[in-house]
Simulated assay, not measured.
Amino acid sequence: MNFPSLLGVVLLVLLVVSAFLLSAAVFLTGLWGLLLALRQPTLPPFFQSHRRRMAAWGAVGMAVSGGLLGMATWRSAELRAQLLCQRRLKAMAAALHRYTLVHHRFPQAERWCDALREMDPGLNFRCPLDKGSVCSYAFNRFLSGAPAEVAKRPMPFIVIFESDARRWNAADGGESWPKRERHGSKRGEGGLGWNNVVLSTFEVVQARGEIPQQTSLWQPKEEQE
């Protein structure tokens, strides 16, 4: 995991923990006020005269705490999905690396999923945030059957990427790049989120911006010239 990704995880964890603590404090305060208001015979005169206000504040406090808990739960679920997507891509990257070591070339684009599954039968090809998809990723068609030596070139390029093709053994040159980013708190808002990719260095990184238009990220340098 690169530094920006690690920093994002730490910030999200802090946000979730803070939301839980704040919601617990608000909930307990609201519950205390509500109980005091309901037990009016035992209250001092000041509290008895303000029991309706206290009951209202108690109800508001409990509602706010419920909202904070819901937000924290949603954010923690989203964080888990993001990490799970990266973990699945790392497993694919490891299987791809083993494939290139054994066969000395990249798999054929039309059967890359099958080839990687032969290396690791336990691979999962679906991003948790891509509902109802058989395969959430695609293979760079420019690397179909390419010699493994191309991975040693100085300029890294994309090998596997998140895709809207949503089919088994999907492969193209970036045409199926998701129109809406799948990850990040502002995913789908004009490039403010990100998609995960596997590079030719067999690393999993976060890709932002106009990735499909950057030819150097898809084709090995010699093929561009």
Rank of each mutant, 00 (worst) to 15 (best):
Q206I: 00
D130G: 01
P154C: 01
Q219G: 01
K152M: 11
A138Y: 07
V159H: 07
R167V: 10
S163I: 00
S136Q: 06
A151I: 11
N195R: 07
E210P: 15
P128Y: 08
K152Q: 14
S144E: 03
G145E: 11
C135Y: 02
M155E: 15
R182N: 11
A171Q: 05
R153W: 12
H183M: 02
P220N: 10
W194L: 13
T201E: 13
Q213I: 07
E175C: 00
C135H: 00
D164P: 08
S185G: 12
Y137M: 09
T215L: 13
V204R: 06
P178G: 05
E210K: 14
D114S: 13
R141G: 00
P147E: 02
Y137V: 11
E189Q: 14
L116G: 07
L129Y: 00
P147T: 05
G173E: 03
K179C: 00
A170Q: 01
H183T: 03
G184A: 08
G209K: 06
F139H: 01
F125E: 07
W112I: 00
F157S: 11
W177C: 03
S163C: 03
R167G: 05
E181K: 05
I211E: 01
M155R: 15
P178A: 11
F161R: 05
G145T: 08
K152R: 14
G188P: 04
Y137T: 06
K186N: 12
V150S: 06
E223C: 00
A138D: 06
R167A: 11
R187C: 09
F139K: 01
P154L: 12
I158N: 07
F161I: 04
I211Y: 04
W112V: 08
F125N: 01
E210F: 05
F202I: 09
E175G: 03
G190M: 09
Q213M: 10
R180T: 06
E189T: 14
W168M: 04
L143K: 04
Q213V: 11
V159C: 13
V150A: 05
S200D: 10
T201D: 15
A138N: 04
D172K: 00
F202T: 08
V204G: 09
V205K: 15
Q224M: 15
P154S: 13
R166Q: 10
T215G: 00
R126P: 03
E189I: 05
E203R: 13
L116H: 08
E203L: 11
S185C: 08
C127G: 03
P147K: 06
K186H: 13
G132V: 05
E210C: 04
E223I: 05
S136C: 09
R180D: 13
F125G: 04
N140E: 12
I160W: 09
V150F: 09
N140L: 10
E175P: 04
G188E: 02
S163P: 04
L192M: 13
R180G: 01
H183Y: 02
V159P: 13
N195H: 05
E223L: 15
W218C: 04
S163E: 02
P128D: 06
A138W: 04
E203M: 08
S176R: 03
L192N: 12
L217F: 11
